[in-house]
Design a binder for these strands. Structure first.
Lengths: 103, 103
DNA sequence: TAAACTAGTTTGTAATACAAACCAGATTAG
DNA sequence: CTAATCTGGTTTGTATTACAAACTAGTTTA
């Protein structure tokens, strides 16, 4: 595996914040709401909001907006594409780095 | 393993270009020169130069400047710290993502 | 001796990450 | 009732970053 292969990975995933978001969503059976992401990842609301927007626009997450108890509730889940891309990202990083480190 | 753990990784390594650079250096027995990095990773000189500067300032790579055939030659190698941080980065990404994907 | 090449660095710009300020509505206090 | 506070976000401004174009210093070729 060639280091250059890393250049073909989705740049959105090579940000540790978004990678953490995707990991959290991937590991959750159910949808995850905004507040939960905020608390578990310790981000500011503005920062989380813009990361989620990018992931949504890239089709890596699905978004569901609703009202619960008259209050807005936004929940997220990984899309099929998101799952695929995360799997692919990990595979490439592992392959390249393990190969570099001599297994 | 908790997605939030990714937030403690070195942000310098969560850029795919620098990760590729570190992988290439880690996998090389000998020092690697500027031109080789340029060719193997297909970057522009300015871009590579500034990435290398950051890695150097962070102490992740060692730099050696000399003259060969009257021409400047800059070679790089991973530092002990760099090796350690790369290993740590991979370990965390693997742990978090594999845990999220259910092994 | 001028043009082109090598090996980079510096500088300007576009994109990105982030937090502060804002907004809409719901709840609580006076 | 209505003013302040809380909730659940989005928008906007700013600092940082990634990147390429232009530059520098010296070398080789024409």
């Amino acid at each position: 595996m060639n280091p250059h292969d890393l250049m073909q990975t989705n740049p959105l995933l090579s940000d540790r914040v978004r990678l953490a978001i995707m990991a959290l969503l991937t590991g959750s059976k159910d949808e995850v709401d905004f507040k939960t992401l905020l608390d578990r990842l310790e981000l500011t609301k503005g920062n989380l909001s813009s990361h989620m927007r990018k992931l949504e626009e890239a089709g890596l997450v699905d978004v569901h907006k609703s009202f619960v108890d008259r209050k807005p509730l936004t929940t997220y889940s990984v899309s099929a594409k998101g799952r695929e891309e995360i799997r692919n990202y990990l595979a490439k990083v592992e392959a390249v780095l393990q190969s570099a480190m001599g297994r």
